[in-house]
Each structure stands twice: as C-alpha cells, then as structure tokens.
Design a protein around this nucleic acid. Structure first.
Lengths: 349, 349
DNA sequence: GAAGGTTATTGACACGTTTCAATCCGGGTG
DNA sequence: CACCCGGATTGAAACGTGTCAATAACCTTC
C-alpha cells in the first residue's frame, strides 16, 4: 500500500495514452500490436505519448481479452540438476526470441507438485508448456490440453504423436554407445547403476546397454548386473558403492555404467574413499555430460546429450504449435554422443 | 486454434458456476477468496458446482481487477550456476507456501537482459521480485518500485535500507575466514583469483582476505596478489592457471583463494594438467560450497553460504512486505562458514 | 466531378474477476 | 407488533485490453 501511493504517476493505461496523443484507444492498441496497420505519422505521435507518460502495458488486460497469456511454463523435475538448467537456458533463449515469458516450475520429482503446477498453468491460461513428466501417467497433461494449453514433452520419446509433441534423445543409442565402449576395452560384464525403472529414460538406456552385449554374442542376463536406487543424485551413488563391491574383491565388477553423471560422480568419490582407483581398479561411465564431468580427476567418460539444443528445439516446436495453423504433433529425436575421458580403461585381470 | 476447439467444455467462468449453483457471481467469488463470509450450505453448493463443471479460475481476470498478480519474479544472474539454483529452490518452496507463483528470469549477467526482465515484471504487474542485481546501478529496481512492484535484493548487502530490503551473506567475514585458515596453515602469501571487481561481493571478499593478513601483522599489499578474470566460471579458472604460475617454479605461489567454487574447480583441473598436486604443491580455497566441492578429489576447502536459507529468507521478507501494513525495509545478514576439506595443507618450503 | 476503391481511424463491446453499497431475511428486543 | 441488528447475498460497476464492424478520409479512374 505504502509502496503504491509513493509511486509518481498513478498508473497510466492505454486510454490515457490515447487521450494524450489525440487518438482513440483502438489505435494505440494497434500501434502496440500491429504497427503496420497505422500510419507513420500517428504511430510516431502515439509512441511519443507512450514514452512521455512512461506507459507500461498491462498484460493481465490483454491476456484476459485474448484468452491466452504470453507466457509458457517450463516444468522440470529438479531445478537443482545441472542437466535441467542447461535445458532451461535453451528454452529461455528461444522463448525470449518469440517474446514469451518463461515460468519455471519445479515438480521436485513428485506427482502432487506436478499436478499443482499444471493447475497453475491452466489458471494462468499459459500459452503453452515444456514439460518433463514425472512418470508414465500423462493424465495431467491431457487435462492441460483440454484446458487449451498445449505442451511439448521433453525427454519422453514414448508419448504418442496423437497426444502431443515430444523432443528427446535416443536413450537406447546412448546405452548402446556406453556398452560398446566398454566391450571395446575388453570388459565382459558391467554393473548398471540406475534410478527407478519407472523412469522411461533409464529403462531405454538399460535396454541399449544389454543390446550392446547381445550384439557381441554375450548373454546380457549374466553380463549386466543392475542396482536400482530411489534417486539419481551423488549421495545415492556414493551409498551404492557398498552394494557394488559386495561379494568381496574377487567378484568385484570392473566397470560401472551409471544412468546419470550425478550418480557416477558419487560412485567415483565412494570408490576413492575405499582406496580403489579409477580407472585402474574400476571403469566408470556416466550419462549427460554435465559441466563438471570435465572437472573431476580423472575426467568422466560419459554419454553427452545436446542439452541446450534440446531446450531450444522444444521451445521452437511449441512455438510452431502456437502459431501454426495446421499443426500436427511431431517427434524430434536427437542422437547422443559418447565422450571418452579418463575414467575408463582396458580390462586387466 | 485447432487445439482450442478440441476442448470438451468451452471454458467456464465464475458466472457459469454461479448460474449452476443458483447463486450470484459475487457469492462464488467469496467462496473462492473469503469462504468464511459465506454460509456453510451455499458454500457446499458452490463447491459442488465448481467440481462438476471442472471450473478453473482465470488469474488474468483477478489480477486485472485487483491490480496485482499473484506471482513474484526471481531474477538471477545465471541459471546455470548451481549456487543460484539452490537459492531458487528456497525461494520456490517459500513462495509455494504463500500461494505465489515464481517466474524465473535469467539476466545472463547482462545489463540489457536485466532491464528487459524488469520491464516484463512490470508488465505482468508482479506482486514482487527477488533480485540479484547485475551491477551497482540500481536504477532499474527503483523504476520497478515506482511501478508498484516491491523487491528484495539478494546477496547485495550494500543497498540502502531506505531503498529496499536485502538478504545477504557477510562476504567480508567469508574472505577473512579463508585468509585465517591459510595463515593458520603457515602461508604467508596468497593469490586471490577473482571475477570483475565491479561485483560488490568479490570486493568484500578481497577486503576480508586482506584484513586477515593485516590482523596477523603482515602487509596485505605484498601478501595478497590479485588476478582478475572477466567471468566466474571453470574455464576462466583453468585459463588463469598460466598467469598464476607465471614467474617460474621459484616464485610460484603456494596458495590460491578463488572468489568462487567454479573458478577453484577450474584451477584444480588446470594444476592437475600441469602436473602440480593439490594440496601438496598448492593449496586451493573456493567460495560457495557448491555440491560438487565435495565430489572432486581432493575435496575443495571452501566458504559455505547458506544458499537454500538465503532464498527462503528473501522470499519471506518479500512476503512480509507484500502483506505487512507498516513494513519497513530490513537487512538480513547471514554468516558464512568455512568448510575444510582436502585441498588445503600446511605450507612447506 | 461522381463513383468506386483503398487505407486509417473510430467506438463500443466483451473478456472474468473483485468490490462495495444496497438489499434481503430471520430473529431478538423493547 | 414495530423496530432494529447482524449476517448472507445480490447487482452493478469497474479494471485495461483486443476486436471488428462501421465510418471517415483520401486517392484513382472514367
């Protein structure tokens, strides 16, 4: 209250500008939204009035009238994960280019929060959303569509094309690349350290890994051992080391493939604490190619995803859905790339 | 277009709900906003209608009418920096508790983008904002106040209290803690690797560092050498290593204090590549205590900031400013804490 | 110079909500 | 029984914008 009354000018609207420029409100609106329809001379006059009165458009008014707001939601699983922040940058850059504001919402990997956030987007009549769904249940998103807010699924290649757009990276190919790399180094078995299999991405990475062993004539059932953790963070990776090493030094695996760089970094730390050396005693492969994968020593061999590009592509797709007259849902698939650093080495008995 | 027409119900408003419940629109509004003012029986009837029609409130309407929207902006310097994402979590959690939506905006450390984003907040008639200003020029923020959007400055203890609230961490104390730690280990000189001195935080850390040497009877002018880099990221740290080592092995410094963990991690990598060992050949101290400070080997000794709490406190302050009748600007100052890990060791000649 | 055509501008209404003075109703009081 | 009081509800008036049919102004052409 005190803040408002302290303000210099008591809030000026389009009508005030119109009066000041000797023109009708409709014309001012046109200057703002379709400048080409208004004559040069009047346009300049209006712009002068806008500048002089320090007019700032009220987006509530326009979204109310037009039924949609000029902002898009970005629903991420975890704001803390560097993977998402990189994606966010891509989305933001592209959105800024289209004049859209980005509302960042964090589901914190929890259904309930996702539902709340989706509802919020509906209340804001958001133009669209880029969403990383928290699990396989897409009902929240279908509801959102019915409310008139379209969306693009991120990193979920499994959404049907009649339901919505999606942008993702080929997780099967990524898992396979990691597997082939290790096999090429002479490894004949690997431990796959992962988050919950409820997450589609990790399932696909696992399948890719198995496929790599299969194509080399090995039996994936015996070659690939799986350790499932509830979350994909460093602490979980560190904790999992004991499980990895259980069975004693004789049966100790010589290679770990982690579903995530965060897990992998945790594992490397845990191994170090127990006196094991990477890559001499154990090869470690991660997934994502987070910035710090290059900062640890040894550098982490990992499957790189085009994070920034992923965000850009998603936003571009959304934009085309918003403007395009005859839009059909599309599925964009990026291919990941293996980045070899120091954390993997040839198998030695 | 196509998307909209596909929707099941053609958008239902408060009036439709009112009709369906046999009540006036005003009453529905009351059920939504001040349920205590409406009789139990009618309230239930209205709630039933809301559920049956799957009504979802249109926030454009309410912000238009009330003049303010129920969202707050979070203006960060760099979405990519883990320090900010941690802060963002704090802000988000606290905002959710107050029923406020958070709009995340990224200035990318650029004046122009900050200005654009501030303007966006004004257009949205945002209730408030939590801001990390890009530099010392606060004119954008003053303008924002004039537009009726109040804000809290984050990590900028130098904003005057008659201008706005601020939440920050005592950078002088942080720099001092780092200095004392190194001095305690027998170091008699240190290289301070930093970003631009235009940033208030790094200036204060520098002063704190010097103060530590001064209190031990050493001359800060000779004990503290400064290397200034344009940005605070790992790549810059890595690049700076050559400058640090210039002068040959004889004059090589034995301790580096970095204004930022990102820089420090870059330095550690650079040192490793040149065959120098941390902490034996060089002690390294960082600032922030980012998650990965604990993941690298050796662990990074660093000055920890209560990031999450910082975000929470800022949002709480903002909230009190929004609701509080007689609000006076406040300045909250947290104290940082040194976390000792393996990257620092006693001086040996 | 009149008819027709093009371009620029206008005016009024609608969007969904909140607010507030006015009204209604039921019950207690004098 | 008249009166009043309090709580519950109503109705209408904004809030600032976009839209669109209608009008005005101007230019071209015969």
């Amino acid at each position: 209250m005190s803040t408002r009354s302290r303000s210099a000018h008591p809030v000026v609207g389009i009508t005030e500008v119109a009066r000041h420029a000797g023109v009708s409100p409709g014309t001012v609106s046109n200057v703002l939204n379709r400048p080409e329809r208004v004559a040069e001379a009047t346009r300049l006059r209006v712009e002068a009035a806008i500048a002089e009165l320090d007019y700032v458009r009220n987006s509530s008014g326009s979204s109310l009238r037009s039924g949609r707001s000029a902002s898009v939601g970005l629903l991420v699983l975890d704001v803390t994960n560097p993977f998402f922040t990189e994606v966010a940058r891509g989305v933001e850059d592209e959105a800024a280019a289209s004049g859209l504001a980005v509302v960042l919402l964090n589901s914190a990997e929890a259904r309930e929060r996702q539902r709340r956030n989706v509802r919020l987007l509906a209340e804001q009549r958001a133009a669209g959303a880029v969403v990383m769904p928290v699990d396989d249940d897409l009902s929240d998103l279908l509801w959102l569509s019915r409310q008139g807010t379209s969306w693009v699924a991120l990193d979920r290649g499994d959404v049907a094309e009649d339901v919505g757009c999606s942008v993702s990276v080929d997780n099967h190919a990524g898992g396979m690349a990691a597997g082939r790399h290790l096999i090429g180094l002479g490894h004949e078995s690997v431990t796959f350290l992962t988050g919950p299999f409820a997450i589609e991405q990790v399932r696909r990475r696992h399948e890719g890994l198995r496929a790599a062993f299969e194509e080399s004539g090995m039996d994936p059932d015996t070659a690939v051992r799986v350790i499932e953790q509830p979350l994909l963070n460093p602490a979980q990776g560190e904790r999992a080391v004991d499980t990895i090493l259980a069975g004693g030094p004789r049966q100790r695996p010589r290679a770990v493939f982690c579903a995530n760089d965060q897990l992998a970094l945790g594992v490397m730390k845990g191994l170090g604490q127990r006196g094991l050396r990477v890559p001499d005693d154990m090869s470690v492969v991660g997934y994502d190619n987070v910035d710090l994968a290059d900062l640890v020593h040894p550098g982490l061999t990992t499957v790189a995803q085009p994070k920034y590009e992923l965000g850009r592509a998603a936003m571009r797709l959304l934009d085309s859905e918003l403007n395009g007259a005859g839009h059909v849902h599309e599925r964009v698939l990026f291919t990941p790339e293996l980045v070899v650093r120091g954390s993997t080495a040839a198998y030695r008995s």
